[in-house]
Amino acid sequence: MEKSARFTGVTKPDEVTRPPRKFVRYLAAYLFSLPYLILMLAFGIGPAIYALIISFTSYKNGRPQYFGAGLSNYSKAVSDFRFGSAIGNIAQYLIISIPVGIFGVISIALLLHARQGRYTDFLRTLYFVPGAVAGPTAILLAIFMFDPRLSPFAPLLKAFGFQTITDVARIQNLPVMITLIGFFSGTGGWVAIFYGALQGVSRELLEAALIDGCSAFQLAIHIKLPMIYRYVVFMFILTFAGHIQLFAEPLILNDISAGNTIAGPTYSPNMLSYFLAFSEGNFGAAAVISLLMVLVGLLGAFIIIYGTKFYKTDATVAS
């Protein structure tokens, strides 16, 4: 990384003195990037701008009247009684899932790192593999794991007083259930990242602290944790922006029993947006909620890029 930084901004003299070649070089750069730029415009920036337009659009007899709605879609979306409850649900879920996720990942990474060897390598892989069980598979698997009559965790479920799946599958349990699903398939990847970061902590520093009588616990809390603090901030922002997009889990958990009886069709903002668009044909209000979700993502992106400087953009190979 350092090597490339050293070369940043180096320009060769002939670049300045021979403008025709420079033009050819620019042309090459643009041709190489053209397909990507088209895709970015069509599928990265385009949809967001189109949603912005739709959010001001009203429909008459199925025909869009661009900018004909003024702010009415906004007021409709925000004053919809389902909007408030969707925000409430997502807030409940975020309040549980983010601390559990971050605390869990930090604990596992520190526990594994406290003493390394073959067993910890095996465990790291074991924790990582559920990442392959993603999306609907993980959700379906969870439905079976939450069923006290099927689950290997049955003793635990029964200890909490759950006898059948209908005892578990209640709307007030959803935030915890979805947190567990996400924790199951999402933790291993983050543990691997945090573990990698911990490998970067200098061995001499850790040994010096041990000689000074530091215990493994003190080492973890006072030396290792501050060293990986940036990664915690990074994970917080990414999981916040990701978890707020909740869609598939409540949708598929609805299948535990017939009809949308557990989460309902408008449990999360994205579900509400989907429902408004496809069941009520209200694309304007749906676009407003989608824009809100994009906005949260953008906010996260700006904090990561300009606040944490987690990614670098100034590196070039001299040429």
Partner: peptide, 19 residues
């Protein structure tokens, strides 16, 4: 590139559908 890679893809699914 950085912005579009951090904003979760699922935020854009419905706008993509409309587009």
């Amino acid at each position: 590139t950085l912005i579009t890679m951090i904003v979760p893809g699922s935020a854009l699914v419905l706008p993509l559908f409309m587009e």
